[in-house]
Design a binder for these strands. Sequence first.
DNA 1: GCCGTTTTCGGCCCGACTGTTTTCAGTCG
Length: 586
Amino acid sequence: MNKDEVAQILNEIGTLLELKGENPFKTRAYVNAARTLEGMTESLEKVVTENRLGEIKGFGEALQDKITKLVTTGSLPYYDELKASIPPGLLEMLGVPGLGPKKVKALYEKLNITTLDELDAACKAGKVAGLDGFGEKTQQKICEGITFRRTYASRHLLSDALVLAEPILDSLRSHPDVIRCSTAGSLRRNKEVIGDIDFLASSKNPTAVIEFFCQQPGILNTSAKGDTKASVILPGGIQADLRVVSDSEFPFALAYFTGSKEHNIVMRQRAINRGLRLNEYGLFRSDVETRDPLLLVPCKTEEEIFAQLDLAYVPPELREDHGEFLAAEKNEIPRLIEWTELKGSLHNHSNWSDGRNSLEEIARHMSDLGCAYWAITDHSKSSPQANGLYPERLRQQLVEVCKINERFAAEANEFRLLTGSEVDILAGGKLDFEDDLLAELDVVVASIHHRFSEGEAETTKRLIAAAENPYVHMLGHLTGRLLLEREPYKVNQHAVIDACAATGTWIELNGCPDRLDMDWRLWHYATSIGVRCVINCDAHRLESAGFLRLGAGVARKGWLTKADVINTLPLPDLMVELKKKRGKTG
DNA sequence: GCCGTTTTCGGCCCGACTGTTTTCAGTCG
């Protein structure tokens, strides 16, 4: 069993223990261990074999034993028994807003409710309101929560949230009573999938700001409205929360509500270690919780809060407790990539395969946007569903691209279309085109579009074989995942990354809102062994050029800098890099 | 279940909000 599978089981044990009413700190020990595994770059099997699990913080005797069993035997009797003791429907009930482990447990024990449907029926029959600790309002809220979950997914793509959040943010900033305003939460951290949208504002007149917020266009429903906080539902069922604080509290509240939760726990602990206390209201010279303004360590910005805790500023994207504290202590937080540093995309489609626009349209549009280059990498012949090109048509396309580039040159426009292919990786790792054809192309992206259900070993082998081809510049969308829709195919990503490092193959960060693949959690490892990134649009229409910005946002979560990303290079330098792996010069 | 120049036991981040209570438990972030 690999480490992702083990992590998933540890997470599930944590949830099951919560439902059993176990000690919450025991629960947390399992969840923390799962997170540690997810962030681990070494092979878990190797660590287990070498008996080094105990060296990892948070892995005591019990966890070492359980993890070892899972890795070596693929099963864990403790987990099986735990799982068998709890009806599976209870896990689903936890997803209803307002229902936590204690309430779910009570519903199960007192009313024998084990599924969402039974819960819905019990609420409608008025049985839930009579339970201790429940009442009419709780019953009604549960009913609404079930309906909400059925109507809308509770998780949303980052891009969908950004489109809704940005106009509201602009609007709030323009309000005369708003002093400072920002998004917070997972949206500010550029998480690829978010739960809700958080806004934070500072003002001397919170009521007016709250009122203004609740009147923003597009709001479907106002679910809560108080003096300093309001929640509304936006189109698509996305919940948006606004909190209003005083301007002196703003930096503390911003840091607090930006999270992540894991990052905040370490920040608080650092404060405690320095005889201070950190919460959303301030940083206080006190060893007990307080909001006494006389004890406040004044900070005007988040930068100053970090400085008080002997840390360099940590950009929001890095606040995941994924190594940012170690780096910030040593003042080694990198200058992260900005999307404006990208010069073009190296994986895109035209109407020659499954894209919408002609080569000429694409070239004009991307040139007008200020791009220096744009590669056309239409599908290859084994993707007939995407109208993949046969060698003959691809060679015709090269002639067309050449003509367009000549026209641009005649106009003294330095923009260039690059030729290319998104070549299918077939069974066994063979590519859909012969090497002599690939050698004629400026850019070759190799991607998997078939045989998703092959085993991990086989898929890994295919990707490594593609990386070993001297004409393949980069691997496209490494796991094939579609966020909130399709699971990634099984692949040992670390092994593929290692192969890319060994062969000088780049890895794509696909900027499509539902891909954002390879995942940000793996880039720190990839760049640490010398793998470079290409942030691509995988554009099928002109508007997809905006995916450069989205991709760069998520790239920042992976600690990527301008130097790590190939398509920040100007055209002449890019052309040099494109020839390196093929052993040519200049 | 983990952890330890306060410790091998007794902590583990902590405040707001909600609803149910009439002082607090549960949930959420």
